[in-house]
Write a protein that binds this DNA or RNA. Sequence first.
RNA 1: GGGCGGUUAGCUCAGCGGUAGAGCACUUCGUUCACACCGAAGGGGUCACAGGUUCAAAUCCUGUACCGCCCACCA
Length: 877
Amino acid sequence: MNAQEMPTRYDATQKESHWYACWEEAGLFSPDPNPEKPRFTITIPPPNLTGSLHMGHALCYPIQDMIGRFERLRGKSVLILPGQDHAGIATQTVVDKQLRKEGSSALQLGRDAFIERVWDWRRESGDTILRQFRALGCAFDWSRSRFTLDEHYADAVLRVFIDWYERGLIFRGKRVVNWDPILKTNVSDIETERKAAKGKLYHVRYRFADGTGEIIIATTRPETILADVAVAVHPSDERYKDIIGRKLIVPLVNREVPLIADMYPDPEFGTGAVKITPAHDANDYEVGVRHQLAMPVILDESARINLDEVRPVPEALESLQGLDRFRARDAVVEMLEAADLLVRTEDHDVQLVISDRSKEIIEPLLSEQWFVDQAALAKPVIEAVRNGEITFTPDRYTKLLLDWLENIRPWNISRQLWWGHRVPIYTTESGRQIAALNPEDAARRAAPERVISQDPDVLDTWFSSGLWPFATLGWPDETPDLQNYYPTDVLVTDRNIINLWVARMLMMGYDQAGAKPFSHVVIHATVLRRDGARMSKSLGTGIDPMDVIEKFGADALRWALLGQSGQNQELRYLEEKPEEARNFANKIWNATRFVLMNVAEMPPEPRDLNPVDRWLLSRLAETETTVRTAYEQYDPQTACQTLYRFFWNDLCDWYIEVSKSRLADESTRQTPQWVLLTAIEAFLVMLHPVMPHLTEELYAYLPLPEKSPFIMSHRWPTIPETWHDRDAHAEIERVFEITRALRALRASVDLPAGTKIPLAGFTGELGENGSIVSSQAWVETLQAGRPEGKVVSTHAAGVDLYILLDGLVDVEKQRIRIERDLAKLADERAKLEKRLNDPQFVERAKPEVIERDRAAKAELDAKQARLEDRARLFSEA
RNA sequence: GGGCGGUUAGCUCAGCGGUAGAGCACUUCGUUCACACCGAAGGGGUCACAGGUUCAAAUCCUGUACCGCCCACCA
């Protein structure tokens, strides 16, 4: 197709899928096998199996694609490895919901059938999101796509477990965990959210066993009285100092418990005395451990009362058995009131902990779980981060990670689910626990004993995703990929999972793979709506990126998001942004089309460049430096802004306009042809990481003598030192400033742009650039000197400009304008004068600053004189 | 309770020690042969507030307010 056949509008949707297919067919998504090339690797954050594309993805993955494409242009062999996370709890919930709709349930199906069902579901719809990444233009190596439940990957997960178990880093223990009574599993802190709510604070009487008095205790959860094992006070609390160790009677239950001293109670709060319920509160649990207290549990896995562990209890309490925790609370309060044990009830703000998945209130519950002691694992990571071996963009997140690592706590890795990596612990006849890769391995290790069961729990999803950067490359086998691509280079992710995921990969990388998993972590912004609210699918406040792609193209969406993505922690998405981006793409399309209409083939490099040519090349050189640095620093916003200005303001608004006359003339066209093609080629290459499809499409049209098969496999532009031409740059910027002043002058006397004015004059130095000024300001004749007759004038960059007024001018309008301008000028002048008259300023400020102010002052004086002239002119009229 | 961001033109954001910037929106003008998804010229801001440092502060320091995020065990 030639330029004449190019439509005046760029149709993104058609071209984008076309080019994606071309790249894939050409094998460009796999790393270049050339061993000479330096490697560059990213393993993408594997999206959840249940995920569908949202705006956060539309930012996160294009950032990685942008980095990858940039590094590829710079001559590296790039691997971006995609894949998916099985996302235990999220996926299990989704499939269970489907089953319920069908009138079945996970429980009914049973473990094996349920897992089979999830696999079915995965095969059916599981990789929708990966297909959507293609629509975004992401150049990921699909041939290496991995899933955290792939056989080989799962093996790697179990090996880590076994290794840590054998080294004593994994242990089994009872802790208070976040129990979800609907899903009947414990969940991690990240899978919960806190919500402020109105609650009640109940003040309850605890009488001394010897009948000598009582202590009042405040609690928000009176039902847990059933599991009370002590009352605690602060050791320094004068009110209780002398009675520590005495026995109290737990109300209703009538159990004797001790009054103990512990640092936990805050003497300022309530009465300073706290009831201790170790099985149902994390703090109380700590107290319980310190004082070796019993820890009876009085709620079952559905958070219903179960008195088994506290029996015998008074007859009256038996009615509570099987009650839901909240109904039990009401019942207990009633009983307390009836027994005159409730002193008073007051309103109290409480923090509810809600499970993300079920939206149910979390029950802190003592249960037996597997834990990883992370302290030793964190050590090398802390050191590496401190040494700067691992760096963050933005830098502020370094501290976030360090703070967490330095206060690290045991990691609860077991979940009461079916979908995931099953805990590889087997129990033998004699009750011995064995860690093994699979049942056969377990049998072998158990011999001569027999294995009778495997732990039913599965591992926390983060345990397996922690291995992502190396298990995806074949670890623990010493595969060529592992050798070639590990350690990876950059990790791009959301700040919410710095501790949960990034920290785990670092720990596992150092400990298991023997080296850091990546050197640099890029934390991208959270995409919000215009009003700053979250985009939420459940609330219907999200915008589907696929809709935007369909309407404006992936390039437009990428530009809209990347162009707003700097060091900020939020990014407000505006519907008009992709449209603006589409317009920019269209501008590029048409400017290129114009060039192609004027250039049939690339002329040889010219020797005689005009100042304008040299100016454009110097702008190109500046742009290259800024854009390259911006990409290197993961700053898409600056890259986009710089590219936009260069293309629209410099290339289109000025260079193309100025060059039109030379292009029309056969004897002068070669130089601008060469400059234009050179600039457009370089520009397209630099833009390619952000707008891969458009640039590929346009590159295909360029009549270049030596062309790469694809712009994607092009080289980053090489800028000769001579293009950094400061003189030409300054000269031409000055000419443009003068041109703009003349345009403004003609507009100020209501001469519309485009209609030629017959005669204008100038005094001052213009060199050979007069023709630029006259053509760009639409002047028939631009002569040296002030024309005779009625003229209006202006000044710019050392040149006075005059327009001969010919015909009628709206005098009244002019008067108003002049008055306004004079008033404004007086303000500016006063400010400047005040400063220049300040002896301290003149004495202490840098000379160049003073000089600039003096020049500005002189300029204002001249401007004032001109305005006064003009005022006189119109009063004469 | 602690930490981290943010507060600049109607909107979204750059700027981070020397006379306030961009895009969009707005006003006026324009069928100039690449583009009206365009071009030209304009209007619009006491840079949240209060102190301080400095010849000079949107920019540095201190404090306050509001918005947002994260961490934390207040019954």
